[in-house]
Structures are given as structure tokens and as C-alpha cells.
């Protein structure tokens, strides 16, 4: 494990430049460049707001702002986009870089590290855009926002743990690559992101307890939309759960790394 960290440190320059290169290439030769990063999620939020805010506006107690639903939606979307981006990129990460892993010797842990780095950059840009939107909507950003730091770390750990597990398994069992986007879709709709949790019927609330993302998204809602601290006990549990998952992911990654190239 320490070997992994040491090689990550040794390759820090490479990881940083890879993250930078990803940004350059993503927007190379496009007029709006990096703006597209903000446009995509904002359009999504705008669509949901336009369609759903009239239906749901009355059911969001606790937020004074008449754009309450949009704010709620943005808070959840920020967290979700980080979570889903890391998982879906880790899923095909090793398969996409199969040739590179076969022909070049470098610490393979650098690959997920690059994913984490660039997803985190996207996330920060999104967060910045959200702040701008909140200012326009005259929604106050409170000091509780400091809670976003532990929340972000938990999302990262959870997503990376799941992503590593699925990414490694996907090398050997390619069905994983097919089934995961479906499961991600299901998770999206089984998590209160586009709808408030108070419209969930009681029988379904039981099921939500098994959704590890639920307390995290709730935390984002509390911090961003309501300006309240998140539920610390719940977050501690989910932090421990994420930690275990991350360690499991790293363990599987290590055990599989000898055989990975064989199967690619």
C-alpha cells in the first residue's frame, strides 16, 4: 500500500500534467472551451427546473427562495455528477488503457488517480458555477459550506472504491461494463436528487436506508439548500462504509494487477 502511495508521489508531475492535458484536449478547437463544462449541467438543471418546479415547488418547506427547487436540484446534482463521473470513467479505464498497460511500465494506480484529479477539477468548476447561479438567484451561501469538504471526500472515497472494484472486474467480466450504467440510472432515480425526500412513500423510505448515496446527498441538501449542518452520525457511518469499500477496491486492484494485462 505504501509502495502505491510512493509511486503516486513519484508520478505526481505526470498525473498533474495528464489532468491538464485532458482539459486541453477536451476543449481544443471549440470556441466556448471550458464554458461547456458549466453549460451541460446547468442546462440539465434548467430543464428539470422548468418541467418539475411547478409540480414540486409547494412541497419544499424550509427554503424561502422562490427558486427553491432549482437550488435543491443543483445541490444534489453537484454531488451526483462527481459520483457518477468517477464510477463511469473507472469502469472502462483499464480497458481503454489496455494497450498502454501492455507496452509501458508505469504505476497503474496513476490511471485512477488521473480520473480522480480531473473529476475533481470538473467538480470544482461546477461548484463555482453553482455559486454564481446562487448569487443570481439571491440564495445565501452560509458558513456551513465548510461541510462540503468532508462531504466531497466521502463522495470521492465511495465512488473510487466502487469504481475500482467495477473497473477491475470489468476487465475479466465485460458484462459489468454493460450493467453498470443501468444500475447508475436506477441509483439516480432511487436517490432524492430531482425530487424532495418528503414525497417518498413510507414503504420506500425503508429501502432508502440501503442507498449509501442517500445520506451524502442529504448532506449536500442540508448544507447548500438549507444552510444547516448535515447529520454527523449518519455521515460517520457512511464514511466508514466508504473507507472499507475503498480499501476493498484497492485490495482487489492490487491482487488483480498481475493478471490484468493477461486479460486485456
Amino acid at each position: 500500500m505504501f509502495g502505491m502511495l510512493r509511486s503516486l508521489w513519484h508520478y505526481r508531475g505526470f498525473i498533474a500534467s495528464s489532468v491538464r492535458n485532458e482539459f486541453i484536449t477536451k476543449f481544443a478547437r471549440s470556441r466556448l472551451g471550458g464554458l461547456w463544462m458549466i453549460i451541460h449541467p446547468l442546462v440539465q438543471v434548467a430543464i428539470y427546473t422548468l418541467i418539475l418546479s411547478n409540480v414540486l415547488a409547494a412541497k419544499l418547506p424550509g427554503i424561502e427562495n422562490r427558486y427553491a427547487y432549482a437550488i435543491y436540484l443543483i445541490a444534489g446534482t453537484i454531488a451526483w455528477s462527481l459520483f457518477s463521473e468517477i464510477i463511469s470513467r473507472c469502469l472502462n479505464l483499464f480497458i481503454e488503457h489496455g494497450n498502454l498497460m501492455k507496452k509501458m511500465r508505469f504505476p497503474r494506480i496513476a490511471l485512477p488517480a488521473i480520473v480522480v484529479g480531473s473529476s475533481l477539477m470538473n467538480y470544482l468548476v461546477l461548484l463555482l458555477a453553482a455559486c454564481i447561479v446562487f448569487m443570481i438567484l439571491q440564495h445565501d451561501i452560509t458558513a456551513q459550506s465548510i461541510w462540503l469538504i468532508p462531504l466531497t471526500i466521502i463522495v470521492l472515497m465511495l465512488a473510487l472504491g466502487i469504481g475500482l472494484l467495477l473497473g477491475v472486474l470489468n476487465i475479466f467480466i465485460r458484462d459489468i461494463g454493460q450493467v453498470t450504467p443501468i444500475l447508475l440510472q436506477l441509483t439516480y432515480w432511487f436517490t432524492p436528487i430531482v425530487y424532495p425526500q418528503n414525497i417518498i412513500p413510507n414503504w420506500a423510505k425503508q429501502a432508502l436506508c440501503f442507498n449509501p448515496l442517500y445520506p451524502i446527498i442529504e448532506g449536500y441538501h442540508e448544507v447548500i439548500a438549507y444552510g444547516r449542518p448535515p447529520n454527523i452520525t449518519q455521515l460517520t457511518y457512511i464514511f466508514l462504509f466508504s473507507l472499507v469499500l475503498l480499501l476493498l477496491g484497492l485490495f482487489v486492484f492490487r491482487r488483480a494487477s498481475a493478471e490484468m494485462v493477461d486479460a486485456l
Binding site: Y11, G13, F14, S17, S18, N21, I24
Partner: peptide
């Protein structure tokens, strides 16, 4: 393909460690 030769050299040599 989108990066310059110089940037690619940096990247490739970084990959070599």
C-alpha cells in the same frame, strides 16, 4: 493528437517516470 509535440514529449517522458 491534439497536443503539441512538446507537450506530448513532456507527457510521454512523464509516463516513463
Amino acid at each position: 493528437a491534439e497536443l503539441t509535440g512538446r507537450e506530448n514529449v513532456l507527457h510521454a517522458a512523464g509516463l516513463m517516470g
